[in-house]
């Protein structure tokens, strides 16, 4: 038999919830990391096609507002995530995350709806592509947040099973990061 000191039963995720949690977290981290790659492609494209140019038609104020909403949303989400990792259930705060995220989206849609940046010029192509990616992620993330809120209506908080909560807020943090980086690259540098 093996001479290993650790009892084998604790080495499987079935018997060891900490390991299971680590596994889930690893998967989510890999996913978020992998989604940095499309962002790199897009950033490449931005500098390849328009260099450092920022269109004067962009409303810097609205852009900043959108990014700040997302940043705040992210901060709250990160709180929820780290607490969930310790077994605390802060589901109600997700409403704030959701609200701020929705505001960020609305600000962006507002900017889009002016069509001041023409999709037919070079900067416009880059602008709509990059923000479009960010919106896609945000919509996916919102569905995740809604799922956690909806769950809370049916299930009592369970300190042993806060992974879903952790997952959606972790995912949202990653998505927020992509959103904010997109803003920085498009509006500032």
């Amino acid at each position: 038999m093996s001479s290993r000191p650790v009892s084998p039963v604790t080495e499987t995720i079935e018997k060891n919830p900490v390991l299971r949690r680590k596994m889930n977290r690893f998967g989510m981290s890999m996913f978020i990391l992998s989604q940095v790659i499309p962002l790199i492609v897009l950033i490449d494209v931005r500098y390849l096609f328009v260099g450092l140019y920022v269109s004067p038609h962009l409303d810097q104020g609205v852009g900043l507002a959108s990014a700040l909403f997302m940043l705040l949303s992210m901060v709250v989400a990160w709180q929820v995530k780290t607490r969930a990792a310790r077994g605390e259930d802060l589901t109600p705060r997700l409403k704030w995350v959701l609200l701020l995220g929705a505001l960020a989206l609305l600000a962006l849609f507002y900017q889009w709806s002016w069509r001041l940046v023409s999709p037919a010029d070079r900067f416009g192509e880059v602008y709509y592509t990059m923000t479009g990616f960010a919106v896609f992620y945000a919509v996916v993330g919102l569905v995740g947040l809604l799922s956690a809120l909806s769950r809370a209506r049916f299930q009592l908080p369970d300190p042993d099973d806060t992974w879903h909560l952790e997952a959606v807020s972790y995912l949202w943090t990653g998505i927020g990061l992509i959103w904010v980086l997109t803003y920085v690259v498009l509006f500032l540098i």
């Binding site: 992998s34 989604q35 790659i37 499309p38 492609v41 897009l42 494209v45 096609f49 999709p119 070079r122 192509e125 709509y128 592509t129 479009g132 990616f133």
Partner: peptide
């Protein structure tokens, strides 16, 4: 795979919108 997916999305937009990347 994420790299090519981003590329193909740009290809799709290039055709659909159309863009001129």
């Amino acid at each position: 795979i994420p790299e090519i997916q981003a590329t193909f999305v740009m290809g799709l937009l290039e055709k659909l919108v159309p863009f001129n990347f």
